[in-house]
Amino acid sequence: GLPPGWRKIHDAAGTYYWHVPSGSTQWQRPTW
């Protein structure tokens, strides 16, 4: 699974990851 606080988001551009507490997003899968 993903580290705490991360969500996987799907949209028209593809899949990305959202860090809910900080509001940051990234294309790379977050690592622990």
Score class of each variant (00 low, 15 high):
22 S>L: 03
4 P>F: 04
12 A>W: 08
17 Y>H: 05
31 T>K: 09
31 T>E: 13
28 Q>M: 08
22 S>R: 01
6 W>Y: 01
9 I>S: 03
16 Y>Q: 04
8 K>M: 14
11 D>L: 09
15 T>G: 08
21 P>F: 07
5 G>H: 04
20 V>R: 04
16 Y>A: 04
5 G>Y: 05
27 W>P: 12
13 A>G: 11
28 Q>H: 12
12 A>N: 10
5 G>S: 02
26 Q>N: 05
11 D>F: 09
19 H>A: 01
32 W>A: 10
2 L>M: 06
4 P>H: 06
6 W>K: 00
7 R>L: 13
3 P>G: 03
2 L>N: 01
21 P>D: 11
5 G>Q: 02
18 W>M: 14
20 V>M: 10
31 T>S: 11
3 P>M: 03
15 T>K: 05
27 W>V: 15
21 P>K: 08
2 L>K: 10
17 Y>P: 03
26 Q>L: 07
9 I>T: 03
20 V>A: 11
23 G>D: 06
6 W>G: 03
15 T>D: 14
3 P>W: 02
23 G>S: 04
19 H>D: 05
19 H>R: 00
1 G>A: 13
30 P>E: 03
25 T>W: 13
17 Y>A: 00
28 Q>T: 12
8 K>L: 12
25 T>Q: 08
2 L>F: 03
3 P>L: 03
14 G>P: 03
15 T>Y: 09
26 Q>W: 04
31 T>G: 11
21 P>H: 04
17 Y>F: 07
29 R>L: 12
15 T>S: 10
2 L>E: 15
18 W>E: 15
19 H>L: 04
14 G>Q: 06
30 P>Y: 01
12 A>H: 07
21 P>R: 06
15 T>A: 11
19 H>N: 02
8 K>I: 15
17 Y>M: 00
23 G>K: 05
10 H>F: 10
25 T>E: 08
27 W>F: 13
24 S>D: 13
31 T>Y: 09
28 Q>A: 10
6 W>D: 02
23 G>V: 01
27 W>M: 15
21 P>V: 11
26 Q>R: 06
12 A>S: 12
30 P>I: 00
21 P>E: 11
23 G>P: 00
30 P>F: 01
7 R>Q: 10
9 I>Y: 06
11 D>W: 08
22 S>V: 02
15 T>M: 08
8 K>Q: 14
20 V>N: 04
7 R>D: 07
13 A>Y: 13
17 Y>E: 01
27 W>Y: 12
5 G>I: 00
27 W>D: 12
24 S>W: 14
10 H>S: 14
10 H>N: 12
7 R>Y: 11
23 G>A: 03
30 P>L: 02
8 K>V: 15
21 P>S: 08
8 K>E: 15
11 D>N: 11
29 R>K: 14
27 W>E: 12
16 Y>T: 02
18 W>H: 10
15 T>H: 08
1 G>V: 11
6 W>L: 00
9 I>H: 06
4 P>G: 05
29 R>A: 11
12 A>P: 10
12 A>Q: 09
1 G>W: 10
15 T>Q: 07
31 T>L: 12
32 W>Q: 10
17 Y>K: 00
26 Q>V: 04
17 Y>L: 01
9 I>L: 07
1 G>K: 12
25 T>R: 13
18 W>F: 14
15 T>E: 12
22 S>E: 01
1 G>I: 11
1 G>E: 13
23 G>H: 04
16 Y>I: 08
5 G>W: 06
12 A>E: 13
24 S>K: 15
31 T>A: 10
3 P>E: 02
18 W>Y: 15
7 R>W: 07
18 W>D: 05
4 P>T: 03
14 G>K: 08
16 Y>F: 09
21 P>G: 06
12 A>I: 10
29 R>D: 09
14 G>S: 05
3 P>F: 04
16 Y>H: 06
9 I>G: 04
11 D>Q: 06
16 Y>S: 03
3 P>R: 02
29 R>W: 09
11 D>G: 14
8 K>N: 03
11 D>H: 09
16 Y>L: 09
20 V>D: 07
22 S>H: 03
13 A>L: 14
29 R>F: 13
2 L>H: 01
13 A>M: 13
23 G>E: 03
11 D>E: 06
3 P>Y: 02
18 W>V: 15
20 V>K: 06
29 R>Y: 13
